[in-house]
Simulated scan of single mutants.
Amino acid sequence: MHTVLVVLHAASGITGLLLALPVLLAPKRRGRHTLLGRVYAGAALGLSLSAFGLFAYDPGRLWGLAVLGALTLGWLVGGLWIARRRPRGLGARGWRIWHLNLMGSTVIAFVTGFAVQMTGGHLVAWLAPTVIGSLLIARTTAREIARAPRRIALSTAT
């Protein structure tokens, strides 16, 4: 069973890493973005669930994997829920900003896992993807906010 989990984890990780950029760059409408996004979400789900299974084999050494898996799963579920429900209380484009931030965080998790694996767990591998990814998400969020329709505040003078 351990080997199956390792293969599932590796295949999910590779799939997610390969699809992250195409999903991010695809026009945000039905079609390519949603199709690639569904496959990406499946990879993120496979990655998270296999992380929990692998953690069960060696909790003392793989606690970081479990934390990353739990965070990824939470961001994934939140990002998908927001995209499907598009809550009105978030404003005209608010749901897109939340979706962008949550799904962008899953990409950070994929990159972090890869970097940690490639460096043998070096501290920089744990921190650099979050710092760089957060800056990219912040920049993209600012652009999305700038594109949002301006609300005109009407004030009544008394």
Score class of each variant (00 low, 15 high):
residue 91 G to V: 04
residue 23 V to G: 03
residue 81 W to K: 13
residue 152 I to H: 07
residue 67 V to N: 07
residue 131 V to C: 01
residue 98 W to Q: 10
residue 139 R to K: 09
residue 2 H to F: 15
residue 105 S to P: 00
residue 102 L to Y: 01
residue 134 S to K: 02
residue 20 A to C: 10
residue 1 M to T: 06
residue 15 T to A: 10
residue 93 R to W: 13
residue 41 A to N: 00
residue 112 T to C: 09
residue 24 L to V: 11
residue 137 I to A: 09
residue 59 P to H: 05
residue 23 V to L: 07
residue 98 W to T: 09
residue 79 G to S: 01
residue 100 L to H: 12
residue 67 V to T: 13
residue 81 W to L: 14
residue 40 Y to W: 07
residue 101 N to G: 10
residue 144 E to W: 10
residue 44 A to M: 14
residue 94 G to L: 05
residue 127 L to E: 06
residue 83 A to G: 07
residue 49 L to Y: 02
residue 2 H to C: 11
residue 152 I to E: 08
residue 8 L to T: 12
residue 138 A to F: 07
residue 69 G to I: 00
residue 127 L to T: 13
residue 74 G to F: 02
residue 41 A to Q: 02
residue 140 T to C: 08
residue 121 G to Y: 00
residue 153 A to M: 12
residue 107 V to P: 03
residue 100 L to I: 03
residue 155 S to W: 06
residue 34 T to V: 13
residue 101 N to S: 13
residue 1 M to W: 14
residue 131 V to S: 02
residue 43 A to H: 02
residue 67 V to C: 07
residue 105 S to A: 11
residue 148 A to S: 15
residue 143 R to F: 06
residue 78 G to A: 05
residue 124 V to Q: 05
residue 119 T to R: 05
residue 2 H to K: 15
residue 142 A to V: 06
residue 24 L to H: 09
residue 69 G to L: 00
residue 20 A to D: 08
residue 123 L to F: 11
residue 68 L to W: 08
residue 142 A to L: 13
residue 21 L to K: 08
residue 24 L to P: 04
residue 142 A to M: 11
residue 156 T to P: 03
residue 87 P to F: 06
residue 59 P to R: 04
residue 143 R to T: 06
residue 80 L to C: 09
residue 96 R to C: 05
residue 51 A to Y: 03
residue 58 D to N: 14
residue 5 L to Y: 03
residue 90 L to N: 06
residue 105 S to H: 03
residue 99 H to L: 09
residue 77 V to W: 09
residue 75 W to F: 15
residue 69 G to R: 00
residue 42 G to F: 01
residue 101 N to W: 15
residue 58 D to F: 03
residue 61 R to H: 14
residue 122 H to C: 02
residue 116 V to Y: 08
residue 36 L to K: 05
residue 114 F to Q: 06
residue 147 R to L: 15
residue 108 I to P: 03
residue 21 L to D: 09
residue 155 S to M: 09
residue 60 G to P: 06
residue 35 L to Y: 09
residue 147 R to M: 14
residue 82 I to Y: 06
residue 53 G to R: 03
residue 24 L to Q: 11
residue 156 T to F: 13
residue 101 N to V: 15
residue 110 F to R: 00
residue 47 L to A: 10
residue 19 L to I: 08
residue 98 W to R: 11
residue 139 R to Q: 11
residue 17 L to P: 02
residue 128 A to K: 02
residue 13 G to A: 01
residue 140 T to E: 11
residue 56 A to V: 08
residue 105 S to T: 07
residue 83 A to W: 05
residue 139 R to G: 14
residue 156 T to A: 08
residue 156 T to Q: 12
residue 94 G to S: 07
residue 36 L to E: 03
residue 41 A to H: 02
residue 73 L to F: 13
residue 54 L to M: 14
residue 104 G to R: 02
residue 157 A to M: 10
